[in-house]
Amino acid sequence: MIQSGTRLKLVMLAAVLLSGCSIQPWVKPYERQNLADPITFFGRDPISDNYMHHVRQAREIARGAEGSAGGGCGCN
């Protein structure tokens, strides 16, 4: 049986988690023009970035988590 103190903590935890689901974006979509600029992308050209991954993986034993390509605007 759950004690009342524990139950209160669970309710509070649930409230915190639920409030997390309703977080308002602090950077509005119309404020993301800088992040949508291609110069901010981690690798604007996948064909070139994939090749550099290839060059490094052939000569360095470290592998994985090489992410570099991709845009930054976060807007569908």
């Binding site: 992308f41 981690f42 690798g43 996948p46 970035d49 994939n50 991954h53 290839h54 993986q57 052939a58 592998r63 994985g64 090489e66 992410g67 570099s68 390509a69 991709g70 845009g71 930054g72 605007c73 976060g74 807007c75 569908n76």
Partner: peptide, 19 residues
């Protein structure tokens, strides 16, 4: 290297946004 290339074309393109 080969596996990484196949993966990186898609996965890391989308790392920063689902577009």
């Amino acid at each position: 290297i080969f596996g990484g290339l196949v993966v990186s074309v898609s996965f890391f393109n989308q790392l920063f946004a689902a577009v």
